[in-house]
Design a binder for these strands. Structure first.
Lengths: 199, 199, 199, 199
DNA sequence: TATGAATGAGGCTTCATTCAT
DNA sequence: TATGAATGAAGCCTCATTCAT
């Protein structure tokens, strides 16, 4: 990697960091490309050398941030080194993510307003930011053949968690997040049970 | 109601109808007030006699449309005149709404991108468009004391249904809606069961 | 004067009072005819039954208010019943007006931003709001033949007073009004002296 | 100064010149930014690269033009190379400015409707357009200690001249400017005399 | 690569004025 | 007389994008 490449990477990161800062502070549509460029210390034209448009940088940002989040969660899980049953692993990960998003609500807003299942799936499969850890593989390895439709199951859980937690964290409605968690985790257990192939 | 009021009502409806048409076709942010006015056949200034701004007309539109949807569903349910158990009533309503939104995908897009739990709750309680039918009351009457936290339960179901169906109907992902329904309804049944107070 | 005429007069006064309130609070150009009508409790169209446009009401207002101001000043002067020499009468009137405008700065702003010599002259000659007292006549009577060009003299004094007092009252620049007064009155005396025909 | 800077300066001047033309022809409030841009041959957005808004360009214009006027006047005075007493220097400058504004009445209108003492003072002290010549310094140097309150004196003279000449030049009221001048200059002499510290 | 001046379409909103009732 | 809904011109300003340097 030459000097130039390093410089390029720095510039790109500066743009991404600035965009994250502004997106979470003021909202995506309230943030202009001018602002991002200016705060990042590059010329407006330079932005277009790295990203196609605002949508482009937004998607890359979200994929990157959520990918990091799950990586961390799985890492924590493995550090525990307990041999949790699958359902409890899933809940551990969920719990970790919820706590992180409760701490960092602007990230929560950015992600939940912009993260659809499509983006999420490619995030999970590490299409954009490959790393050693991969939630998809992880789940398949853990569940093997005991789950009939693992993707559908995951889909339901992810959507349930993400949409309900948004309200619970941001508005404490219908319950504050800590009071809501037990109901949520019970439901996750029920969903997993429904998908388990009887043996 | 005088002649003038009738005319005003007509103009307002014309604006609402046009806005719905354009919002569902091109998206809310891609629709300008100029366009709405023009297509509705009124002057741009006239728009501001009826609505404060784009957000205002959007919210009124969503509240109106979703309120209508649930009214219809409950009406159909009562027309059946079968004495379904509570869970099955809920699934009947869900099924009706899903079918309607599958037929009218642009309405689905408008609603699911803009309907949060807050707006939904006030829609359900008929705050904006009061009518004879009220889903909230309906549920309370049906469940009486057999559900521990009816609001939390409803919250989970509504959010699960709305967020997963969006993907399933629009992208057929992870399954087309008809194949997804059985899993969804099973999960609804599990959730209700979890909330039932044991006797 | 019939009932209707009384009602008309009331409505007109209400419009004038409201306009004065809004003009002095927010400035003439920041005040719309809508606002005036609304606050006055009449319909927008009604405004046009009484005034041609905003300029019209503004001019009538200023003429009325400044005419009142001078009437009061002359009345106070006559109440004193001292036989002041002409110059001191002029200074008495000036002093009275300055004090009133210091108390009521919004009136000062309205008048000084909008009162030119032309409007002032017609105000003085009671063209718009005739009354028993007339500054013009009063001055002529007092000065008789001792002043060579009474109108030029008055013109200079009025313009000097009005333009300098604005700054002095509003910005205390270059001096606060009370400290500025002695210089001003000295200058008035000098001007009068310059115009006196030697005998 | 690079090529770009030259081009920018040209564009800025083009905008200023056009604005001056339009402001003096149609008045400030009757001139829109669209018009200025269009006549200057630049896009509307370009205007905003150079000026914040209409007020901004107006103030810069007035400061620039009046600063030029006084510079010229002082230069002419010094070219004469006569050692005039202070009062006569002041009258010379006044006379020069009056003549220029009589020739260029649209400039007179622009300046007198928009130039308050505040703007004038900063113009005089060359805050905005510094040059070798500074009226303030000039006056101090000339008067030294013979004037008790030079700023108050200047204030009175400037306000008297500017407000009365406007009427005299534009409306020939109460006298045409040439006939009015003697009275004005006499009054200036009286004012200066009043401020002279007796010795 | 990097710049940043220039563009100009397009959005939002206000408001004087009219006119049918 | 009095109303106030309707008009639509007109203003202001932003911003994604291009392109000559």
């Amino acid at each position: 990697m030459g000097k130039l490449d390093v410089k390029k990477q720095l510039k790109m990161n500066s743009l991404l960091d600035t965009a994250f800062e502004l997106f979470t502070t003021n909202g995506v549509s309230q943030t202009s490309i001018s602002e991002i460029s200016e705060h990042a210390g590059v010329a407006k034209g330079t932005f277009y050398l790295y990203f196609k448009d605002k949508l482009d940088i937004r998607d890359k940002l979200i994929a990157y941030k959520s990918s990091k989040l799950f990586e961390e969660a799985i890492q924590k899980l493995e550090e525990k080194n307990e041999d949790l049953p699958f359902t409890e692993s899933l809940i551990f990960i969920t719990d970790y993510v919820i706590d992180k998003l409760t701490e960092n609500q602007s990230l929560l807003i950015l992600i939940s307003k912009n993260l659809g299942w499509g983006v999420f799936k490619s995030t999970l499969s590490n299409e954009l930011y490959p790393s050693d850890i991969n939630l998809y593989e992880y789940i398949h390895r853990k569940t093997q053949d005991r789950i009939s439709q693992p993707e559908v199951m995951l889909f339901m859980i992810v959507e349930l968690v993400s949409s309900t937690c948004y309200n619970s964290i941001i508005h404490s409605e219908p319950l504050p997040i800590e009071q809501y968690k037990p109901y949520l985790y019970d439901t996750i257990r029920s969903i997993v049970r429904d998908f388990e192939t009887g043996e």
